[in-house]
Structures are given as C-alpha cells and as structure tokens.
Amino acid sequence: MPKLTFFPLNNADCCLLDLDGGQKIIFDYAHQKDMADPNDLRIDLEKAIRDDLNAAKRKDVDVFCITHLDNDHICRSSEIFWLEHASCYQDDDRFKIKELWVPACVILEDGLVDESRIWRQEARHRLREGKGIRVFSRPEVLRKWLESQGLDFDSRKHLFVDAGTLVPTFNRGTHGAEFFAHSPFASRLDNGELMDRNTDGIFVQVTFEVSGVKTKLMLGADADYEVLSAIVDITNYHGRPERLEWDVFKLPHHCSYLSLGPDKGDGETVPVDQVKELYEVHGQRGGVIVSTSKPIPQTGSDTQPPHRQAANYYRRITGFNGLRGDFKVTMEHPRVSAPKPLVIEIDHTKARIVTAVASGAAVLTGAAAPRAGRGPIFRLV
C-alpha cells in the first residue's frame, strides 16, 4: 500500500512517498542533525534514507523533488545522491535520481553558493541533456535561458509542468497515484514578476487510489497565506474544487502563522477567507495535518515558527467539533523526548497513522469516528 514518511528534523523538511508499485519519491531532504551533540533529537536522516533504500534493494530513487532552494529543504542533500553534472558527486555509495523535479527559479537564480549552487548546476545539466528532469513552470519562462545555451526550445518543452496540469510521470491507473501541480503560478510568470523561492516553489496535490478509494495529500514549499489564497482563487476560478480537497496536509513554513494570515493573534491565528476555506471546507473527515517542526511552544510569542497561535487553529479544526482528525508535529511524535518518523499508510480506509513500538509489536490506542463510506482510523503506537 502507499505510505508517507515524515522525519523529525526540527524546522526542516523531508517526506518519503512509497507508491504501490515500489516507486520511491523524496520531497526535499535536509540532514541537519549535529552528530556530536547527544541532546540533538533530530533523526540521522542520511542513515534513515540509506536504511530504507537498502532494505528495498534500491540504488536509486524514482524522483527527488526540490520544492525550493532554502537550506532547511536541501541541507547536505548533495552528499547522498549521485549527480550527473560532476564526477566528484559520483561513487558507489550514492543513490541515483531517475527524475529531478525543480521549480524554474532553481534554473534561473543567480548568486548561489554551496548546496543551492550544486543543485542549480545539476538541474541546468539535466535540462541541457534533455532528460531526467521536470521543471515546474511555463516553458516560455526559460526560453531566453535555453536560447542562451544554444538549445532548441521546442525540444525541451515536454520537460515542463505547468500549474493546473498533471505531472506526466505518474498516473492513477498505472501507479495508483497522480500529482497535480498548483504552483508556481502561470499568471505570475506570464506577468514577468521577479521569481521568489517561496512564492514560486512547488506545491502539489497528490491523489492516491487504493481499491477505488481516493486519498489526497497536499504537499509543497513554504507557501505563505497569499500563495495559498491564490491557489484557492485560481482553482475555484477554473471550477476544480476537487483539486483543493485533502485528507493529509503537510503544513508549509513549519506551522508559521504567516501561512494562515497577516496577524499572529493572541490565542489563535485567524486565517484569511481563502485559507479558511482550504482547511475547513476542503479538508475531509478524519483529515490529518502534519507540522514538520520543533515542538509547539506552550507559552510566549516566539518570532520564529512554530507559532502556538497557528497550532491552536489547526488543533481546533482537526478536533472533535471539526474534522475529527489529527494534528501531528514531527518533533513531538510519538513523544517529545524521543521523536520517531511519522508514518501514514494509505489504503481503502484512507489515511492511518502508524508507529511501531520498540518490541516490533503494535498496540491500538484509539480510533477516530469513521468517515462516510470508510472504516475508522486506527493509530498504532
């Protein structure tokens, strides 16, 4: 069955998607654990990914997606993957990438150093070669760059994924999953606006289908409330409300209030109308919201996320009087003192949160109220 794995990385991101056919897709990768610090509770991400791929007898991943180039989404990622553009990133301990997904700003951004520059060079190399890459954007955005490289524009158009379309790499009939691109927005790019990592990062809706039952995941870059509002407005304008539905929502910006609205609030952040619609109208019964972040503070008003006011909103809407689902924080799961990967399995009952205990056994600790047409969600701890 399909499976989602979110790793405890403090305010950083990595999500591993396992599809029914054995395909492995990694959205972002930020290995920031201080191995010399015994008090650093973040997971050793490199070991976790290596162990998973080795157990599956894989020397590659089907997709590595970089939603945007901020360090909390790419830190040390060039140390584990085989890169095509330079031999210094090629040895037997590395995992090859069948297809690299990037937003157009990864190709176009100048003045980059360190990890972000490495990935820009890799993306440019693959685009020049005309294979092993998907660029999320209208093709015309990169016309001048392609022409400056002496490349035939039309011969690269098939490598681009426009907002409002499906990524052609996967489909529900063959792979049990499809990826619908919400961002970056064609309207911004057409208007010639200056690209911004967060505004023009990758944001997708993933639809899994198991035994005829669809389960939907929202996943992407660190979008603020203006980006999420635009996603709602544009999708509604085109009459596609089903593309806003979700059963699992990976929060952008590590539970920042700025992904809900302009004002943090005192006890609870109040979302702008479009974001309220996204969560409260399009969230499905039993929906799970995942905050890839540090533990939520109980008091105070921290400048940096996670913000308790935003968390209070998510807790309320997923609670008994709302979706009757769950709000999970990666560095709090299953407990703050010993965080472990958050695993969500997808089957004919939709999304189930699963955690194995140390003995390898499993204990049922509760069940959410069943959705219409489905069974209960069992949580194993």
Rank of each mutant, 00 (worst) to 15 (best):
P38F: 03
D273H: 14
V248I: 15
S337F: 08
D44A: 02
D114L: 15
F180H: 09
I353E: 12
H307W: 02
P241M: 07
H85A: 01
V227K: 02
T365P: 00
D37A: 03
C88M: 15
C75D: 11
R94L: 07
L364C: 14
A86Y: 00
V363Y: 11
R243Y: 13
T235S: 08
Q284C: 12
H175T: 10
W82C: 12
E332Q: 14
V113C: 14
L45I: 01
R240W: 06
A181H: 02
W119Q: 10
D52V: 00
T67N: 11
I234N: 09
F320L: 14
T269N: 05
Y237K: 15
Y314K: 00
E178G: 13
A123T: 04
E122V: 04
D273G: 10
T165R: 06
D196I: 10
G319A: 09
G164W: 01
Q32T: 14
K57S: 12
D190P: 02
D93P: 00
R172T: 14
C75P: 00
N236A: 12
G287L: 05
A86W: 00
T199D: 12
T67W: 00
A177P: 10
V248H: 03
S116N: 12
V161K: 01
R50C: 08
P370Y: 08
C15K: 11
I97L: 03
V206F: 05
P184G: 09
Q121K: 10
Q149Y: 02
H238T: 04
G220D: 04
D326F: 13
A104E: 07
V343C: 14
L146T: 06
H238N: 09
L342D: 07
F153E: 03
T292P: 11
P295K: 04
Y314D: 01
H282D: 08
D52M: 00
T5K: 10
G111S: 10
G201F: 04
